[in-house]
Measured scan of single mutants.
Amino acid sequence: MASQGTKRSYEQMETDGERQNATEIRASVGKMIDGIGRFYIQMCTELKLSDYEGRLIQNSLTIERMVLSAFDERRNKYLEEHPSAGKDPKKTGGPIYKRVDRKWMRELVLYDKEEIRRIWRQANNGDDATAGLTHMMIWHSNLNDTTYQRTRALVRTGMDPRMCSLMQGSTLPRRSGAAGAAVKGVGTMVMELIRMIKRGINDRNFWRGENGRKTRSAYERMCNILKGKFQTAAQRAMMDQVRESRNPGNAEIEDLIFLARSALILRGSVAHKSCLPACVYGPAVASGYDFEKEGYSLVGIDPFKLLQNSQVYSLIRPNENPAHKSQLVWMACNSAAFEDLRVLSFIRGTKVSPRGKLSTRGVQIASNENMDAMESSTLELRSRYWAIRTRSGGNTNQQRASAGQISVQPAFSVQRNLPFDKPTIMAAFTGNTEGRTSDMRAEIIRMMEGAKPEEMSFQGRGVFELSDERAANPIVPSFDMSNEGSYFFGDNAEEYDN
């Protein structure tokens, strides 16, 4: 993207840094990872977990959730003011799984939030270390993106479920800051804005008074975040219109849905970061690795190297396929839920299948599930090659597409044709070009129609051997075009429920 120079890199967003050079960025990201790792080690000690239990991804998720809940100030305040039966607002906890007599047992633990905050700050040299908290939120978000298709949420806001490739980060909490905003897809931002506008339509006082002023500035800020994701002048001009509207209503909703559809071809720039579970960072720190000293990046080879040398386990339900569970977590670790499966298959070195073909449910185990038949197995999170994460949407291309997802959002900077089903997408653009945004709409449609099938995206960008740390010898991959490109292809993934 041309304006790259004016933006802070995501590592800076990730670490609240002012302008830093590459070495400083690597050190501050490393410091953040160190903090998460030290916190995780301490929690495993508190909970008396064995090494194996500490490497269980379900335990990692519970521990991450506990610290996120302990620092969720708004919710904590709300819980104190609106006490609900049987919930102690000062405590947080969740299921911890232990191996007892050759069987997995679930144990519900409860801790004072104050105590968890103390352990977290102690692991982070006394700081609140917001960057580390956001990092864990993005890992949870990436896992949700890989596990669930947001059909219901899309339909509720009037969008087409086939636009799911635009929904990265749709389950990120509001408090995820600049680093969170960077990884949100165009569809996620559109959905947040539509929800806001709908509230304004239904509630006369939404934009009024002292609160209304705050609401208005939040609305304009979200519009600017979305505008910054678009790469064409016409899309940005249309966002200006939406932002400046005196009284946002149905016309703005129409414009936003139009823009979301246009992003299936004229893709937005959305950041991709490899955020790993805390149970990967903990053992690495415990083994003596100093992330701050060595430096770390979320968008280069580092996460690949770390996963190459990590042992992570997962509980497996009786009829689940461990290899499929591994694929789910591998995609989440690489922030690749909406990437082209052919690119992923090449990088991973084994075939990556669409969601609907995987015999696996989510990673988390519900409290009512029976533990008797639970097994555990090693997650295979290694890769054959590594590639640089991208934040450009890439230019655009036609490809055989599917009944489910009709476009992709690249996660890796790797040369390819970008699949999208042009006739299906263009069919949504018939007729409606009147109104105050008509010239911009016409211009956007013209650009979409001009998108050429034979153009290559990320020209000359390749993948790298894991021994090639400096990215000196790019390998331009070859793809098996007979395979499906979309992950949520004609899909039956479970729906995400809060």
Rank of each mutant, 00 (worst) to 15 (best):
M189D: 01
S486N: 08
L79W: 04
N142E: 07
F458D: 02
M1K: 11
E465V: 00
G30T: 12
I444P: 01
E434C: 08
M1T: 10
A2V: 14
E64K: 05
N309I: 02
R38E: 06
I347L: 15
M447W: 08
K90D: 02
R8I: 00
V67D: 09
S413E: 01
Y385D: 13
T147G: 04
R243D: 11
E465R: 14
E294D: 12
K90S: 12
N417E: 00
D421R: 00
A427V: 04
P95C: 13
V343Y: 06
L110E: 04
I41W: 13
K31D: 00
M32G: 06
S392K: 11
Q409P: 00
G228S: 12
C164E: 00
E465N: 02
N224Y: 09
W104H: 03
S482M: 05
G356H: 10
G268Y: 01
R156A: 08
E64Y: 13
V242F: 07
F458L: 13
E294V: 15
G362F: 06
F230M: 02
I201Y: 01
F346R: 09
T378G: 08
P283V: 11
D101M: 04
V155M: 04
M481L: 11
Y296Q: 11
I388K: 13
M331H: 05
I365R: 03
Q364P: 02
D88W: 01
T147S: 02
G158W: 01
K422C: 13
I388C: 04
I63D: 03
E443W: 03
Q12R: 15
V155G: 12
R175F: 06
F346V: 11
R384I: 01
G362E: 10
S335Q: 12
G209T: 05
Q241R: 06
A263H: 06
M159N: 05
K31E: 15
S84C: 14
F429T: 00
V463M: 10
T23L: 14
R162S: 04
W207R: 09
G356I: 09
K293F: 02
G158I: 07
A332C: 06
M238W: 01
M196C: 07
R470V: 00
A260E: 04
S326T: 08
D480N: 10
A70F: 02
E254Q: 14
L259W: 05
L256P: 07
K31P: 12
V190K: 00
P248I: 02
W207C: 06
T45M: 11
Y10D: 07
A178H: 09
Q20I: 01
I225R: 05
M374W: 07
D16M: 12
T151P: 04
A2L: 00
A153I: 06
P318H: 14
P89R: 02
S310H: 12
A129E: 07
C333P: 02
D480E: 13
R213F: 05
P453W: 14
K305F: 14
L133C: 02
N59V: 11
E114P: 04
T146E: 01
G268Q: 02
P322L: 07
F39L: 06
E292W: 13
Q459V: 02
P248T: 14
R118Q: 12
N202E: 02
G132M: 11
I225L: 15
M222V: 01
S84D: 00
Q405G: 05
R55Y: 11
E114A: 09
M331P: 08
N417F: 05
T424G: 01
N224C: 06
L341V: 14
Y385A: 04
I475A: 12
L418R: 01
Q168S: 14
I365S: 08
A233V: 04
E244W: 03
K351T: 02
I197D: 12
R382Y: 09
F412V: 09
G460I: 00
S407Y: 06
K227H: 09
Q231P: 07
V186F: 14
P89T: 05
Y296V: 03
Q58C: 03
E339R: 00
I41G: 13
Q149D: 02
D468A: 02
E449G: 08
M163E: 03
L328H: 10
T171D: 14
K214L: 09
K90G: 07
L108N: 04
N125Q: 13
H272Q: 14
G180C: 03
G177T: 04
D145L: 05
S269Q: 10
R213Y: 10
L133R: 03
S176W: 04
E53A: 15
Q409H: 14
D127F: 12
D72G: 08
G295Q: 05
V242W: 05
S28Q: 15
R317T: 04
Q409K: 00
I316T: 13
A323H: 13
A411D: 00
P453E: 01
L166W: 03
R317A: 06
Y296T: 11
G462S: 02
P161W: 01
C223P: 10
A85N: 15
M43R: 09
R156I: 07
H82V: 08
A471Y: 15
L328Q: 07
M456V: 12
L307F: 12
P89E: 02
T433K: 01
I36C: 05
S467E: 10
K113N: 09
R74S: 12
V100I: 11
L307W: 01
V363I: 15
G185D: 07
S310L: 06
N492L: 06
M43N: 13
S297G: 09
L172K: 06
R243M: 09
H135F: 12
E495T: 13
G462A: 11
M481S: 06
N124M: 11
I194Q: 12
G5D: 01
S141C: 11
R446D: 15
K184P: 11
L133D: 14
A181K: 09
I444M: 13
S407T: 15
T6L: 00
Q399D: 04
K422W: 00
S297M: 03
L193R: 00
G490Q: 04
S326N: 15
N144S: 04
V29H: 00
R216H: 13
N205C: 14
P474Y: 02
E455V: 11
N368R: 08
L418M: 15
V186I: 15
V408F: 09
D302I: 04
D72N: 07
P453F: 01
T157Y: 01
G462L: 15
C44T: 10
P173Y: 06
N76W: 15
L56M: 13
G93N: 04
G356Q: 09
E81H: 09
S262E: 09
I444C: 15
L172G: 02
I365D: 04
A85V: 11
S176G: 14
Y219W: 12
A493D: 00
G393L: 01
F338W: 10
C44Y: 07
A182E: 01
E192S: 05
K103V: 15
A493Q: 07
Q231I: 12
F71T: 08
R121A: 07
Q20K: 00
W386I: 08
A234Y: 04
L266H: 06
G185F: 04
Q168C: 09
G362D: 15
L344I: 10
G17N: 04
F338Q: 15
D16P: 01
I57R: 09
Y78F: 15
R261P: 03
A336P: 00
G288E: 06
T433R: 14
A233N: 11
D468K: 01
L306W: 08
I63T: 11
R355Y: 09
G30Q: 15
L49M: 13
T130S: 11
G126E: 10
L56E: 10
F488Q: 04
E380Q: 15
A401H: 07
L306D: 05
A218S: 15
G249E: 06
Y313D: 06
M66H: 07
N247S: 15
E252P: 02
L133A: 10
L264P: 07
G169V: 10
T146N: 15
D160P: 05
G295M: 09
F420D: 01
L418N: 10
E380G: 02
E210R: 09
D34W: 03
S353T: 12
D34G: 10
Y10M: 10
G295A: 04
Q235F: 07
L154P: 01
V67L: 05
F429N: 00
G37L: 09
A153S: 11
I33K: 00
G93S: 12
I257F: 14
A427P: 10
A323D: 01
A27E: 04
K452V: 12
R216G: 07
L379I: 14
M43S: 07
S297C: 07
E73L: 15
E220P: 03
Y219M: 11
P477T: 08
E210S: 07
A178Q: 10
T151C: 02
L266Y: 08
R446S: 13
N144G: 13
C333W: 09
Q327C: 06
R65I: 01
G5P: 13
N125A: 09
K98D: 01
S392I: 12
A387S: 15
P89H: 04
V476C: 13
F304R: 02
Q122N: 08
S245L: 04
T437S: 15
V29Y: 02
D101Y: 00
Q415I: 00
L379Y: 11
L276A: 08
L264T: 13
R150A: 06
